[in-house]
């Protein structure tokens, strides 16, 4: 498998007044083409700080990128000037968040903002943009995509907004999608639909996914490989099945033990 993204010895600090928090400590991770890598941890574990580092989206200050490299193609993303980085963000590497309203502008129609992403990175006519937007919404499972494109974010339900955000992230066909707790705010039935959609789109377009989550149930559904983080460090990294079947690190075991399970629910089906 070809590696698309390679994080090497990344350290990120947050300088908060007199205190320095070592949010990410010497983290190394490889992401292969088309795979889903889950970064799992509790709050404060550094999983989001690690993921945001890829596109340098940690707020500076207080964040300081102490050391490390993030290889993407021929570039070291950490060393890239802002202008070059902007050409990669939302284009080769896209991101979705827990709260779709962090990506969607409440004042613009959904279709128009998805179109802007495309026009920013591609030389496309207005008509082609329009059809690409409707196509992206349709692929994200938005019913009546041509009508929805004409609506504002507040007119959509939580699940539909999440789909619109996914459409916006994928309209440029990125090689890597970073998904930060993409289903955490959703009801379980909607969560199940969105996870299914993500794997469908991944199978269709072959993108790699970095999934940030605290939910080991979600991980068990979609991850190929898992990195478990605690206090800024990766304590364990394994392919999905062995991690659940034979967790090596004490902390992974305690996380698994603390995860509530449906008692007495029927096996399989």
């Amino acid at each position: 498998m070809t590696t698309v993204l390679s994080i090497e010895k990344l350290s990120v600090d947050f300088e908060l007044g007199t205190e320095t928090v070592h949010a990410v400590r010497d983290v190394s991770l490889d992401l292969a083409e088309g795979e889903t890598l889950a970064i799992v941890g509790e709050s404060g574990s550094g999983k989001t700080a690690t993921a945001l580092s890829i596109l340098q989206l940690n707020p500076v200050p207080p964040a300081v990128y102490r050391s490390g490299t993030i290889r993407f193609g021929a570039h070291d993303l950490l060393a890239l000037p802002e202008a070059r980085l902007r050409a990669i963000r939302g284009n080769d590497i896209a991101m979705i968040f827990q709260d779709p309203m962090t990506s969607l502008n409440p004042l613009k129609k959904v279709g128009r903002q998805i179109g802007e992403t495309l026009q920013l990175h591609r030389d496309v006519s207005r008509r082609d943009t329009r059809s690409a937007v409707v196509e992206a919404l349709a692929q994200a499972g938005v019913p009546r995509p041509d009508e929805r494109a004409e609506q504002y974010p507040h007119e959509l339900s939580g699940g539909l907004r999440q789909r619109a955000m996914i459409a916006m992230a994928l309209v440029t066909r990125p090689k890597v999608l970073i998904a930060d707790e993409p289903t955490t705010a959703l009801d379980v039935t909607v969560q199940a639909q969105i996870l299914e959609l993500l794997v469908q789109l991944q199978d269709r377009h072959g993108m790699a996914i970095v999934l940030i989550t605290h939910d080991l149930g979600v991980v068990a559904d979609v991850a190929d490989r898992i990195a478990v983080m605690r206090s800024g460090e990766i304590v364990e990294e394994q392919p999905c099945e062995p991690l659940f079947a034979a967790p090596q690190h004490e902390y992974t075991r305690s996380l698994l033990a603390a995860t509530p399970r449906l008692a007495g629910a029927s096996e399989g089906a």
Binding site: T189, L195, A220, A245
Partner: peptide, 17 residues
């Protein structure tokens, strides 16, 4: 429907997988 939608922390029992 609700019960089926709950993700189980066990890949060998994942319907999606």
């Amino acid at each position: 429907t609700l019960l089926d939608a709950v993700p189980v922390p066990d890949p060998s029992r994942s319907r999606l997988r």
